[in-house]
Design a protein around this nucleic acid. Structure first.
Length: 272
DNA sequence: ATGGTCGATTCTCGA
């Protein structure tokens, strides 16, 4: 069977529910992971998803900030969330997907919204950057101790870091810009090695090629300037590497009316 | 070298 799984920082799911509906209608992924839903669980627009056949929904929301959700056509066995850095932020949610494979092949799926980290890339004077670094340390430690990647597992989300030189429009210009500083890149590397995880986007697109999933609202003429960054990620466990079978980065959606600054990223898996 | 634009919720903050 084939499984398609998407991740999208929607920057307010209520404001952009029509864009989500368009995406789900046109691309019809089996599973969609959202970040920055920016609403309480009671305010989440469940009906719009139910209408499109996404009847399995797990939400970890909070008022005004952050918020993650997983909406799925495929049943899942259980869901949970972890409060990284014990701040009460809604930045993680997990489910165990139950695709109809024979024999049964449950897949642990984790959806993350890593702290952006503010502007100043110095943890001594910028508590938001210190929080980001601590969050990454905790992710790596959790993966090591819980052996997350030793089963069939997938990590997705807005990790707010562009690790490769080709993940940003100018490596040199962004070396001191939060999202591409050496310390963040190193810590993200430790997280990926703690799996170890396979970077599904770079499995499909060689590291020599520029690859972006986000373009700032502040950049006029975003497409022509093309000053993007690859902040959104999908990583799979080694056991799923051989099943990777396609990637779609919907750049066009950045040009839709009142867009998110992130675009949806979808991977296809062939589980046969 | 700086300012540029969004969204949720106020007369500001986080991204």
């Amino acid at each position: 069977m084939r499984l398609s799984l998407a991740t999208w920082n929607i920057n307010s799911v209520r404001l952009r529910i029509d864009l989500v509906t368009r995406f789900l209608t046109e691309q019809a992924p089996d599973v969609l992971c959202l970040q920055e839903t920016k609403c309480r669980d009671s305010e989440f627009p469940l009906a719009a998803f139910h209408k499109l056949g996404y009847s399995h929904i797990a939400i970890n929301g909070q008022k005004g900030y952050h918020g993650v959700a997983i909406v799925s056509k495929i049943p899942f066995a259980e869901s949970g969330k972890r409060d990284f850095c014990a701040k009460g932020d809604a930045r993680h949610i997990t489910v165990t997907l139950l695709p109809e494979t024979t024999p049964a092949r449950p897949i642990n799926l984790h959806n993350f919204y890593v702290p952006a980290g503010g502007d100043e890339p110095d943890p001594e004077i910028n508590p938001k950057f210190a929080h980001k670094l601590a969050f990454l340390d905790e992710m790596a430690e959790w993966m090591r101790t819980d052996l997350i990647a030793h089963r069939d597992a997938i990590i997705v989300g807005d990790l707010n870091i562009a690790p490769l030189e080709t993940d940003v429009w100018s490596h040199k210009a962004l070396l001191k810009v939060v999202s591409h500083t050496p310390i963040e890149v190193e810590k993200l590397g430790r997280v990926i090695n703690a799996g170890p995880w396979i970077d599904a986007l770079r499995h499909h697109v060689p590291p020599e090629e520029k690859l972006y999933t986000w373009w700032s609202y502040r950049s006029p003429d975003w497409s022509k300037a093309d000053k993007g960054r690859r902040l959104d990620h999908i990583w799979v466990s080694a056991s799923l590497k051989q099943h990777l079978d396609g990637l779609t980065i919907l750049r066009d959606s950045r040009g839709w009316d009142r867009p998110s600054d992130h675009v949806p990223v979808t991977v296809q898996l062939n589980l046969d």
